[in-house]
């Protein structure tokens, strides 16, 4: 079972709360996904207010809330948001997002590392959102990150895993769970990440803007399970030349 910072998760699919047509659709989609961890943007929700349009439809017993610092441009802002999350009952879990370019929302590696170092010292369980940079992933683990969340492709693009080569290295070297986040546009992308050995995936846009978000959430849940099962079962190696299914085939003349 997946364990992050001492907490166990049955589902390896994490959800988000952005871009849905309504809070009700969001609630149903999250339920259909079977996820147990949901990220919420601190800019969007008022964590301490039970009447908040998102907070009022989500069951805090059912989901671990992972507040995120979406919108932060540097370490200082992200840290301030983390303090806000904690003060309003968000706990110590934090998805750290430092995205100074509002267009691509790509994460700033320097500020992310800086903020991680400080927040870990303060006792936060930090899950940093990063570009798929293996060295940065190692540096963040050294700094005490509870997991690393490399992107498959820029957020919201539905492009799938364009960073496959680097993600494979990150997974190979990881001492903490690797959660592939951003860019997963289809269940097959999620399955691909899981087959590669990712510990979990986070999917938001692809579910939120699907024609039927609830059915799409179910589709992602199945894909994540299929991908994980395949990984655990041991996938055959991909090879260029044809491999005989019986080892001695074609060599019957040998004595």
């Amino acid at each position: 079972m997946l364990t992050i910072a001492g907490r166990k998760f049955r589902s390896r699919l994490f959800g988000g709360t952005g871009k849905f047509a309504s809070p009700e659709v969001m609630r149903e989609a999250l339920a259909a996904s079977g996820c147990e961890m949901v990220t919420v943007a601190l800019r969007r929700v008022d964590l301490g207010n039970p009447a908040d349009d998102i907070m009022r439809v989500l069951d805090r017993e059912r989901y671990l809330f992972l507040p995120n610092t979406s919108g932060a441009r540097d370490a200082q802002e992200a840290i301030r948001l983390a303090h806000l999350a904690q003060a309003s009952g968000g706990g110590e879990w934090l998805k750290l997002e430092v995205t100074p370019d509002p267009r691509t929302l790509l994460p700033d590696p320097v500020e992310t590392l800086k903020a991680t170092e400080i927040l870990v010292r303060e006792g936060f369980k930090v899950l940093p959102y990063i570009n798929a940079d293996p060295i940065l992933a190692l540096r963040l683990q050294d700094a005490g990150a509870a997991a690393v969340m490399p992107l498959g492709s820029p957020i919201g693009t539905n492009q799938g895993i364009l960073t496959r080569f680097q993600i494979a290295i990150i997974i190979e070297q990881a001492r903490v769970p690797v959660v592939v986040d951003a860019g997963l546009g289809a269940p097959s992308h999620a399955a691909e990440a899981m087959e590669m050995g990712a510990d979990a995936v986070l999917v938001n846009t692809a579910i939120a803007v699907a024609g039927d978000p609830i059915r799409m959430a179910r589709a992602f849940a199945m894909a994540v399970e299929a991908g994980r099962t395949a990984y655990e079962a041991g996938l055959g190696t991909v090879r260029r030349d044809a491999a005989a299914s019986s080892p001695e085939e074609g060599l019957g003349f040998l004595r």
Partner: peptide
């Protein structure tokens, strides 16, 4: 569509 009333925070 969802009419979003809050998508920022003074704490920024």
């Amino acid at each position: 569509f969802d009419p979003v009333r809050k998508d920022w925070d003074a704490v920024f």
